[in-house]
Nucleic acid binder design. Structure first.
Lengths: 332, 332
DNA sequence: TTGAAAGCGCTACCAT
DNA sequence: ATGGTAGCGCTTTCAA
């Protein structure tokens, strides 16, 4: 970048202050005729404002951070893609940061974003409680939580109705005649998993089926899903006839396990997975899944963040709950 | 960010110039004792240099751009993830930009990166010829091309051996007894597709099988892969017994088409797809694919870029060709 | 080895 | 409505 506001001012025959006013659409301070001259000069010189100078001066950049626990999980990359598309349209840039399931890294990235004048931040958080993050996130910093809603969260938040999703999946399996239904859940310290477990329990209780602890499994913080194979093994030993898996990576691992051992699906064991992808319909057998509106979640999160950025003092706090949906295919 | 170099200088009892020298490891200008005082002061105040001020002054940021044509394609998100992990370790930040299969957008993003003092850029380009980009990319700006290598490219470049990949896939199908082998290729104006077509042709020629234009299909710039269904239909009408598909999204669409119509795989038609994912082994039947070392490609691209950034005047230009591999499963 | 000071490009305050 | 100018936080001469 070589052409600066000075050259524009000179060509337009006005001061740099006026050029700055034009750039920032402070139109009431600029007469229409001067405004036009400035615009022409900017065009002629192919002038682009220097982001770094603007940021340094204004104390706010055009960058938004997105902190995710796992960039190998398509769920998060799809969120990132959706967020990115909305932000780009609004002149903002997205930097994705991978916390790799470490709360410390998450906090470090949040601090980095705040320190570096980010306009805002979107967080798929590992924190069980909002208080864990309170020291790096002031009350008036624009932030939106997505997918997981830490306990006592003071920020806007986008989730799906996880209770309903798990309830529907479990109820459907019960109606198909299953009594011994296993669940492979996420780690219990995030809201998502708690709600899903609650939905599973509620459906069983409603049907008068006694809870069996041996049928309830939780992943630890496991990025590749390998753990799923050990968990499904334990569930099979416990005699399940159906399983609900709340994570797409684990679902694949479980399917691999079952197919390798030539266990009939859904004959010997019915499977409901999580997240609907293009490939979900070409598996053997095609997968029944809870479809969450991933892209829409990202879009919504970005939109809320924009709203928040534009009125940072506004006194609203919102928790949007988007609907999920059971897609029935041949695995149940 | 509130604590600046001034506070550090005051606490350490030296000038801001000296602090700056410490920050930038210009150790020969700073005595060990002063250096230690400065470091202590920085620690005590929890000082972090302001990126924007540094950038404004130095004329170079710590940001790297990555331009991709499609953020819905896992291939590119995996590349992004790999690049990001290497850059983060080296104190750089990645901004991913989605050109959405538009060369104009690609050029606009390249210009934006250059204008905004990016340290460098990695491009999965749509350009057929490097000359299309020459006006936005000066010879000394650090840039690495990935996956596709525009004709006459003056920059470093990472690809796989696309010729070999297609040759191996086609040869394998021939050895299984197939004579009428279709190919669903990408758009012919990118290097990747040209090389893959050449590999396909070479294998057929070597086996003495006459080329048949009706068996060679190209996608247009189609992001979702829907076009694949029309193309496989045409190929089936042309009487193929096997098909090689060079794109993961199209492969899924073709499989959906075949499964829906209960066409036996590999009995009626054998399939080799592209890109190996976790789910490739749980499809019906499990997919034979060309596996490309996607993550390694991203890592290598980032490493080359770092090398280039650190010695911008260096007189090397490299084209790294990584190996791909045919993974045989049940679809052939 | 250290420091004073100019200035990167921009915005915002204050004058006019 | 317009312009002069200080200063955001930093790096980099240049002088000491």
């Amino acid at each position: 970048m070589k052409v600066s506001i000075k050259e524009v001012a000179k060509l337009a025959g006005c001061s740099t202050a006026t050029v700055s006013n034009v750039i920032n659409n402070r139109n009431k301070f600029v007469s229409e005729s001067v405004r036009k001259k400035v615009l022409d000069a900017m065009g002629a010189l192919n002038y682009k404002p220097n982001n770094f100078a603007q940021t340094l001066r204004k104390g706010r950049s055009n960058i938004v951070g997105f902190v995710v626990p796992d960039l190998m999980n398509y769920f998060f990359t799809e969120l990132a893609s959706a967020i990115q598309s909305v932000l780009t349209e609004n002149g903002l840039q997205l930097i994705v940061m991978n916390s790799e399931y470490s709360l410390d890294k998450e906090k470090q990235y949040i601090r980095q974003s705040v320190d570096q004048y980010a306009s805002g931040i979107i967080i798929a958080s590992l924190a069980e409680k909002y208080s864990h993050l309170e020291d790096c996130l002031s009350d008036d910093f624009p932030a939106v939580f997505i997918d997981r809603n830490p306990l006592g969260c003071k920020k806007d938040c986008i989730t799906i109705n996880n209770f309903q999703a798990a309830y529907e999946a479990t109820q459907t399996l019960i109606r198909k005649g299953h009594q011994k239904i296993g669940i492979i859940n996420g780690t219990l310290n995030i809201s998502t998993s708690k709600e899903r477990l609650a939905g599973y329990v509620a459906a069983l209780e409603e049907a008068g089926i006694a809870l069996d602890d041996r049928l309830i499994k939780h992943r630890s913080k496991d990025r590749t899903g390998h753990e799923g194979q050990r968990l499904i093994e334990e569930l099979l030993e416990a005699g399940i006839t159906a399983v609900f898996i709340v994570n797409n990576q684990t679902t694949i691992k479980v399917m691999q396990y079952l197919i390798d051992r030539q266990i009939e699906i859904p004959g010997q064991i019915a499977v409901i997975g999580f997240d609907d992808y293009e490939w979900s319909s070409i598996t053997k057998p095609s997968l029944s899944v809870i479809r969450q509106p991933t892209f829409e979640m990202g879009v919504k999160a970005a939109e809320i963040l924009l709203k928040r950025i534009n009125s940072p003092s506004a006194d609203f706090q919102e928790h949007y709950v988007l609907p999920s949906k059971l897609i029935q295919r041949s695995s149940i």
